[in-house]
Amino acid sequence: MARRAFFWLLPHPFLTILLAVVWILLQNEFSAGMAVFGLILGILIPWGTSIWWPDTPSGFHVGRMFSYSLMVIWDIIKANIEVAWIVLSVSNDKLKPAWIVVPLDLVQPEAITILAGTITLTPGTVSADLSDEGHSLLVHVLHTDDPDSVRDEIKTRYEARLKEIFT
């Protein structure tokens, strides 16, 4: 009973904390009144909008998400330098852009969204489209000699980790 009351009042507990933290950061200085107001907003907004997202993703590992974010930031820096070199050194007619199709094992929409966002943020690859039933992701690569290895890297490096985050 207490559990049902808790989830009626806080349908998305993680979102509540996130909204409160964003509110405090927006104020730029910490005071108790602002923290309380942030918490009130963090309770009211998820409660008022909960009809539009009925499915809370179950089993979300925050710790693994944190190490995943660090890895992605490192990959972004590394890939930025590679792509900058490609832009400056490879001429247009030698450029080999390619479409690659990544078959998806992930089923949760949130996990697929994070995977597509990661692929776009990493320079050199842009996620372009999802197939109509959601089983594969279309990715455009700027310059590659071996499209299959890019696909395998996305699957082993990002998708396998995201499957562990959303279990």
Partner: peptide, 28 residues
Amino acid sequence: ANFIAKVNIHQRSCSTPPEPPEDDTWST
């Protein structure tokens, strides 16, 4: 970026993407 890519596919202003292996077509 995803929306710009979708517009490109929709207007056929880029090379046609390959067919997805399992499903019928791309959602765009």
